[in-house]
Nucleic acid binder design. Structure first.
Lengths: 210, 210
DNA sequence: CGGCCTCTCAACACGGTGTTGACTCTCTCG
DNA sequence: CGAGAGAGTCAACACCGTGTTGAGAGGCCG
């Protein structure tokens, strides 16, 4: 939120700022963020390179602004997520994971760029963490309440489980979208992920001995 | 394998090449790969920057050489992994995952650098994939055989499951090692990961209806 | 109108990468 | 043993991308 980008601002020039963001989002969709120069962003927005610095302090700052929007959307959507897990756990989890996938796909470019940038940029890392945290909080709350009502077995820390499963989602979806190898087919992803979530949240299996 | 780095080579100068690799491995442990300049690698190896180019064609080429070693180790260790899953599935899986964790921790710097570099460098991506593929092949083989002997339920594709779980391991361990947030405690990681693997491989749960 | 604040950019400084061309060893073969 | 072919080395250069500086143009407000 608030004051990402521009320094003091008040009247016009907002359009320029937007133009940079729009250019960035467009380019990010077709090319790696690292391969986009500030020159290109500036030209795309109809300004010179030094002028770019009037609006943003760096290329990463642009990414941050883009990420901000995504975070806002994530927090909205997570907040609106239904919590009717008692009546239809499988469906409810699948819908939640489906929403995670949707957000990722919708902001594919920003997500990919942010994941790459978080290794070197603290602010990007913090912001990304914040959005992952929304999902983790949501899932660990639900897991805990499923454990409390006896539907899911205790014996595993709800938070750790939620973190691991959400990180799995992040990684698997990234692999699918980037057509990595090894990866899985996009069509089957939601299914596999849901199954893993369900089994590891509700299952208490002791194969063989132990 | 073979012929990474140096162009034709035959006699001496090998030491120089090693010196670069050693310097790289040392620096990579204390600083992000991106923040290391070729100048530093050269100086560390006692040569000038242009001379560096005699041995490697780029900084990424050095990383590739480092990765090559890791791949070799991974393939060895995966090959040596016991397959006594019938008698003690939980223990066997935990040991396998433990080995994955060990390799990651042992080559922490290279792993982190490779993960960051794979986004921009095709060769790094290919090499990393190769090592992940070793784990995936191993795990999907075992899952398939566990399904065949009736210990694990069918109804989920062994390959997709193996890919997802291995990507989860990669991501969770990275998060732990980099002290990201959200992440989990290093001490509990193996436990949580094993539990998720076991439950999703052997469990067939239908909570509520379906 | 006069001054301030927003906005703009040419020109510069810098740091990193990769290349060139000339030079020095050292080993080998006639 | 003397000539030539590598192997190995590096000063100097060409580039490109980033970020800064300083000087100005235009509008809005008293």
């Amino acid at each position: 939120m608030a004051q990402r980008g521009r320094r003091t601002a008040r009247v016009s020039g907002d359009e320029r700022q937007d133009a940079i963001l729009i250019t960035a989002e467009a380019l990010i969709g077709e090319r790696a963020f690292d391969d986009i120069s500030i020159e290109e962003l500036a030209t795309g927005a109809g300004i010179s390179r030094p002028t770019f610095y009037f609006y943003f302090s760096s290329k990463d700052d642009v990414l941050l602004a883009l990420l901000d929007r995504v975070i806002t959307e994530v927090e909205h959507r997570v907040g609106d997520l239904p919590r009717d897990f008692a009546s239809d756990p499988v469906g409810a989890w699948t819908r939640s994971i489906g929403m995670f996938v949707e957000v990722f796909v919708a902001h594919r470019g920003v997500a990919t760029a942010a994941i790459a940038a978080r290794a070197r940029n603290d602010e990007v890392r913090a912001l990304w963490s914040k959005s992952m945290q929304s999902w983790v909080d949501f899932s660990s709350d639900v897991i805990r309440s499923e454990q409390a009502r006896g539907a899911a077995p205790e014996g595993i820390d709800a938070h750790d489980l939620a973190v691991s499963l959400n990180l799995m989602n992040e990684r698997v979806i990234t692999a699918v979208l980037n057509q990595e190898s090894p990866a899985i087919a996009e069509s089957g992803a939601l299914d596999v992920l849901s199954t893993i979530w369900i089994r590891s949240i509700y299952g208490s299996v002791n194969p063989g001995r132990r």
